[in-house]
Design a protein around this nucleic acid. Sequence first.
DNA 1: TCTGGGGTCCTAGGACCC
DNA 2: TCTGGGGTCCTAGGACCC
Length: 428
Amino acid sequence: MMAIVDCNSFYCSCERVFRPDLWNKPVAVLSNNDGCIISRSDEAGKLGVDMTVPYFQARHIIEKHHINVFSSNYHLYGDMSWRVMETLRSLMGNKASAVEVYSVDEAFMDLSHIPPEALQAYAVHIKETVEQWTGISVSIGVAPTKTLAKLANRLAKKNKQRSGCINVLATEEQQRLALRQTRVDDLWGVGRAYAVKLINWGITSAWELSNMPEEWAHTNMGGVTGVRLIRELRGQPSIEMEEALTDKKMIATTRMFGRPVRDIHEIKEAVATYISRAAEKLRRQQSAAGTVSVFIVPREQDHLTDFRRGTAISNYTTLPRATSLTHELIKAATGLVDVLYEPGKEYKKAGIMLSSLVPDDSIQGNLFAPHAENEHRNLMHAVDNINFSMRDDSVKFGSSGMNKHWKMRQELRSPRYSTRWEDLRKVQ
DNA sequence: TCTGGGGTCCTAGGACCC
DNA sequence: TCTGGGGTCCTAGGACCC
């Protein structure tokens, strides 16, 4: 059997761990740039704060009910996430393959060693341990496949009172009932596009979908992906547990600007800053990038297009040799800005992507490489160390700019309680 | 006025090869 | 007029996830 452990209103819960005065109070967390709501507590939900609505639209409700709002604080969430995952790993005896970290607030666990009659009690044990050790409350779904576990968890969250945030679908009877209660567009693996298709075909419940032939799924739902989905719904495991800690295949950094930008130098500063951040991640996993892509999004036509897909203008360069050196990557990226930028236009967003990642075998320096190259590597290493131990961006490249007028807004961020000494919570 | 930021996998189709 | 068959690799784009 498979379990999914999912933190409840994760970002809000993180904010509350260090603020007991907010327990049982409505809380909401904003996306980058204080753009929209990306997490809200149950209390805030009941007051009418919906997920993904723009902040400016929810603002009147927030002010009226004195809802506590925070800009996102990824240092805090990242650290709390690590604590939760470590707790799960230790519960599984630190067997690496038994816990798969699926996202910042979710993990799959392989419970095949637990006898069916003990699953419910074991799930309670997991929940209580995580809550006691980390202060974060979780919901748990248990079922024979990942897809059914996700479905079980959804139902558990929908009715927290009755379920106690735990739902075990051990028998076929329970699974069938759960499938009947779930709409097809609420399934893990069915997004907006497939939902429309399915409903047009008259398939509305997960149960109905699970009864469709595999060949049908193959032609109509993305080939093997659709077949896997159907099998998973029928209780045949078709999505395996994945290796923990695999290297990224691509690293991206993209941001909205805090205000529209028309100056090419500011765009280049932003791009250089994003590259620096991505290159740091690149070196952390000991990779080098063979391709650098850049995109910028003009402000015009805002209302004509889906703002997420936007009308990004993009281009990429294939480097003569894969590299992890920030200044080489910056040079390529700012060169692309020259190609993409049109004078007179206003831009609202920019982003970069590092791809064609390969292991950087020579990251330790290479005896036969030119002297200068090793110097560069040592420099990068030093910069990473300083920025890690002191403060972000203590040391940075001049091309990243000093003033950063384009920088995103983040006016309501909480302290980094658990990752910065100076932000440590004080107790009287 | 004000709408996030990462990622992954899969398929189709073109280029190219023998 | 009539013009094979099979394979691989790569890329763009669609779909999904949180």
